[in-house]
Nucleic acid binder design. Structure first.
Length: 300
RNA sequence: GCGCCGGUCGUAUAGUGGCAAUUACACGAGACUGUAAAUCUUGCGGCUUCGGCCUUCGGGGGUUCGAGUCCCUCCCGGCGCA
């Protein structure tokens, strides 16, 4: 029998972190974060990272493992997450993956093997000057197979594909490996108006707790404005505010809107996965109590 | 009361006689081969057998082959003078 892993996913502001902690308490688990921003050290308030206190003694993995100045990708994430899974299982405990980065979660759940190609800044600087059409032509020559299914207007993807092709000779096919684990996937989502309210409340709280200082500190530590803006949402808007490109009121307005857009994108991603069992945040805790026994035998 | 300016898809705008009509934002739908909170695509008057058909630019009337665009009039808003 394959080891069981619980996954807690869903759009932002649904209370995933707290619920994951409750689940971990119930099933003797440890938590592996699946969040593309919380991996970075020093990015706490802006990314909504769980605090030491909120962890209630449950060990958390894959938080604060990367330097925001450096490139981090799903390849590294997958490698580290699998190591964490094995470590937790070796202790006889239950791994619980929790986060909102669909791509990171899928890399584990689908066991996707991706080529490990380091970032080549020199090449990127050169490629960034080209138009999408030009980049597509270059890729077509290097890797016709990849050119066939790539989004030909998406420069970010085109540049990455060329980078991989230049390093490996072509862009290898993606491989979905054998399933090593049994995943129980719990999705958390709430009604639009409930979520919007939570988003606003949470945002104002973060600002009060010092989110702007956090971004300012990151910049002083050498994280460029460009890099901060590339993180999106809180980091982008706060960076714009600190550079006096927008006012504080504009920053808050933009954030409310963009976080909502983000929710929509997350939902679009998760919609494809038919194995997700969806719940409202408030109904999940009583259910967790009930499935206590059945989880040890069979899937709930 | 007089004078001037203005009223166009949710909002802001373009359009001064010739194709449902620009652009931005919002809103909706979606992609995802590896920077994923990023990046990208797409719809947005209605209907459609995808060829078209119908209804639209404050209201009404008029000029014209043809009006968002010109004229008259009414309504509404802003500014100026009384």
């Amino acid at each position: 029998m394959k080891p069981k892993i619980i996954v807690v996913l869903g759009p932002t502001a649904t209370g995933k972190s707290d619920i994951a902690v409750q689940i971990a308490k119930k099933f003797n688990g440890e938590i592996i974060s699946a969040d593309s921003r919380q991996v970075f050290k020093g990015m706490d308030l802006g990314s909504g990272k769980i605090t030491k206190k909120e962890m209630l003694g449950i060990p958390h993995h894959l938080l604060d493992i990367a330097n925001p100045k450096n490139f981090f990708s799903v390849v590294e994430y997958k490698e580290l997450a699998e190591k964490a899974i094995e470590k937790i299982l070796a202790k006889g405990k239950m791994p619980i993956i929790c986060g909102g980065t669909g791509f990171y979660i899928d890399s584990i759940v689908k066991n996707i093997t991706l080529p490990e190609v380091k970032l080549n800044q020199k090449l990127r600087n050169k490629l960034e000057k080209y138009s999408a059409e030009k980049l597509f032509e270059i890729l077509e020559k290097l890797s016709p197979a990849r050119a066939k299914n790539i989004d030909r207007k998406n420069k970010v993807r085109l540049i990455r594909a060329i980078e991989i092709a230049k390093s490996l000779g072509n862009v290898p096919e993606i491989i979905e490996g054998p399933k090593k684990y049994d995943f129980i996937i719990i999705g958390l989502d709430a009604k639009d108006n409930v979520l919007k309210e939570r988003i606003e409340k949470r945002l104002l709280k973060r600002i009060k707790l010092g989110m702007i200082n956090e971004v300012s500190r990151l910049h002083k530590q050498g994280v460029s404005w460009k890099r901060l803006e590339s993180f999106g949402l809180e980091y982008r808007q706060t960076a714009l505010f600190l550079q006096k490109k927008i006012t504080k009121a504009e920053m808050i307005e933009n954030l409310k809107r963009e976080i909502w857009h983000f929710v929509k994108r997350q939902r679009t991603w998760f919609k494809r996965n038919k194995n997700i069992k969806w719940f409202e945040p408030k109904q999940i805790l009583p259910i967790i109590k009930q499935v206590k026994i059945s989880l040890n035998k069979k899937v709930c």
